[in-house]
Design a binder for these strands. Structure first.
Lengths: 156, 156
DNA sequence: CCATGATTTCCCATGATATCCCAACGTTGC
DNA sequence: GCAACGTTGGGATATCATGGGAAATCATGG
């Protein structure tokens, strides 16, 4: 369950020649509210995107690891994946972060990056790839609009 | 639950002709925050790797030993293994340590070493061996993606 | 107790990288 | 139009990883 404010909407910013991007101010606000001076990032398992979040999100990752018996195989698998492959990025005074090459490659980023809020975390996409993904998601969601109607006002 | 900052991400550094490696600055920061001027190391039980940590990690090892009745066999077994086979390495002014031959042999290190953060401690691997282990870990974690999906971004 | 060789520790130099700082510009709202 | 804010750009600065020589330390045998 998401407690504080959640990451919403999509923002697109440029990536400069040094590999820096401004994290949207709206997102930075939420991160600061979590008391995290840093941004935690990892390659998405399923999408050509970077999953990112603040201290709260990192805490859930940590809990997933610690929720298993330390001597179990599953604990180690989660640890190598969720801890060993998640990096901590720090902000410059202007609110930018420098994305490491591996993550840039995974998300196929070049000139710009789109930040899409997904509640407790957000993702960083190549803008065009995100557009395509959104169109697909919209269509799929609309086919299931019956699931939304009873709960969401004016749905579908 | 981990209290202070935890070891995250993976860094790969060279081993020079004198057997020295730079411990990643991010990791050294955490060690210093623990007030440990030294690095504690031991051969991993399950992997061809070196397990390492700071004062906090060493404290947990010590507690494992002291948690048993001093007259019990278990106490001695733990003591010989956890205390008797853990060594204390000191940093040179540039933040490097010299890995002893036994540990180098155990982890089959040669030109470079990868430091993978695992929360309260980290491991030192032969870079290629770690890559293989990570791929396996990712696959295993992904098969249990049901555990991840609701919480992590782009999970599984 | 000293001499010796081997090892370790320190110190400095060097690129490469990352970080900071300052400035400019477009938007938005007053 | 002006002020505040967020984004963008680029030069200056600091930090980090790395390599190698010099000095100090240690273990050993005489």
């Amino acid at each position: 369950m998401i407690v504080g404010r959640s990451f919403l909407a999509t923002f697109t910013n440029k990536i400069d020649s040094k590999g820096r991007v401004s994290v949207p101010a709206k997102f930075r606000e939420i991160l600061e509210a979590q008391g995290s001076r840093a941004l935690y990032c990892r390659a998405s398992f399923v999408a050509p995107a970077i999953a990112a979040g603040g201290a709260d999100w990192m805490a859930t990752l940590t809990q997933l690891v610690e929720g298993h018996d330390p001597s179990s195989e599953m604990h180690d698998d989660f640890a190598y994946t969720l801890l060993g492959e998640t990096i901590e990025l720090t902000f410059d005074p202007e609110g930018r972060v420098a994305l490491p090459d591996e993550l840039v490659a995974h998300a196929k980023l070049s000139e710009a990056a789109s930040f899409v809020g997904l509640g407790g975390y957000f993702e960083i996409w190549e803008p065009r790839a995100l557009e395509i993904r959104k169109i697909q998601a919209r269509r799929a969601a609309s086919e299931r609009r019956g699931l939304l109607r009873p709960k969401i006002g004016g749905a579908a």
